[in-house]
């Protein structure tokens, strides 16, 4: 909902005409009614631009302002300037520190594991085998289940100690060996964070796979052929050609994945309701707004989430930009 102020594309405006292949219309340099013509060109853009500015920039400004105010829903008349006290409260609260740590831990684990799995699956899918299209569709499917629905089913149908699939399969396998007392761990209370992570890894691996597969398929065929002619084996080709080429796709998948997973609310809300150390920052902001109803504090949390995300966002924008350059220059 908010924007980063630092944009990595400052260099384009100075380069001649930017990466576009069509001439840019200069502002007021047209003949006669040049200014009017330039505005006529801009006119189709303006509704979308204005709408986006109003809907995404103003709420963030409001969050910034409220974060410096005493503002509780229970005491609507006692608004006032609070200085940094909301921010101080955020940093002094052990709950909030732990939710920040949980967010980092959850995001890093889910993104790294999904990236590694995604890379492996993309390499498999890039080869031809019987039923490749069907397997690709099977891999995408987790991403096409409504996230709440998926989280809900994982909670009750996969992790549940008595009716869940995991313990069901354990009990079936143990039963094959005549063991009537199989272990039945209560996943959600014994491994709450792992349970959330498993569901998210399942959901996000397809995303990584799709981006990385697109990257693999954009490798130059001539270079691959040249490598084969020069006698490069599969491992050498992977290390010297595929990996360097894939770097920006891995970065993009990892950064975009991080942006989405940092924001995750659905899984934490559904699977554990933020209990047992699984509350991440979005969940905490949500409960501060609607349970504690401390709006000043919630805004300070929001501002901190944004500041923490600016680093990821800047890197992500830079990566998108580097992918965007060759496309525009074609």
């Amino acid at each position: 909902m908010t924007t980063v102020t630092e944009q990595p594309n400052a260099r384009t405006s100075s380069s001649s005409g930017g990466p576009g292949d069509r001439p840019t219309v200069s502002g007021g340099s047209g003949r006669g009614s040049g200014g009017g013509a330039a505005w006529l060109r801009r006119a189709p853009l303006l509704p979308a631009l204005l709408f986006t500015i109003v809907m995404t920039q103003l709420p963030f400004l409001a969050t910034l302002v409220i974060s410096f105010m005493h503002y509780q829903a229970y005491a609507p008349d006692s608004h006032g300037f609070a200085g940094f006290s909301n921010f101080k409260a955020v940093f002094q609260s052990a709950d909030l520190r732990s939710s920040a740590l949980t967010t980092v831990y959850l995001t890093v684990t889910v993104v790294l594991v999904s990236l590694v799995l995604g890379m492996g699956i993309a390499l498999l899918l890039n080869r031809s085998f019987f039923g490749r299209g069907i397997v690709r569709t099977m891999i995408i499917t987790p991403f096409l289940v409504v996230p709440v629905a998926a989280a809900l089913f994982f909670k009750h149908g996969i992790f549940n100690p008595s009716s869940g699939l995991i313990n069901g399969v354990i009990s079936w396998v143990w039963g094959l060996f005549g063991d009537t007392t199989p272990p039945a761990p209560d996943w959600l209370s014994q491994f709450p964070l792992l349970s959330v992570e498993l569901q998210l890894i399942w959901q996000w691996t397809p995303f990584m796979t799709l981006i990385l597969l697109a990257g693999l398929q954009s490798r130059s065929h001539d270079v691959l052929e040249a490598a084969a002619v020069d006698g490069a084996g599969p491992w050498r080709t992977f290390a010297s050609i595929t990996l360097p080429h894939m770097r920006q796709y891995l970065e993009l998948a990892g950064l975009l994945g991080s942006i989405y997973v940092v924001q995750n609310f659905d899984s934490v809300f559904t699977i554990t309701s933020g209990s047992l150390g699984t509350a991440n920052l979005p969940y905490t902001v949500y409960t501060t707004v609607f349970n504690a109803q401390d709006y000043g504090l919630a805004s300070a949390q929001g501002v901190i989430v944004v500041i923490a995300s600016i680093g990821i966002a800047t890197l992500a924008l830079r990566t998108v930009f580097s992918l965007f350059q060759p496309e525009g220059a074609r």
């Binding site: 909902m1 924007t3 709420p59 940092v262 924001q263 707004v289 919630a298 944004v306 924008l317």
Partner: peptide, 17 residues
């Protein structure tokens, strides 16, 4: 890139306003 940057930061930051 302005449009893109609006997708980069957490929506939850705009929730309260």
């Amino acid at each position: 890139f302005f449009f893109l940057s609006t997708k980069m930061l957490p929506m939850v930051a705009g929730l309260l306003p």
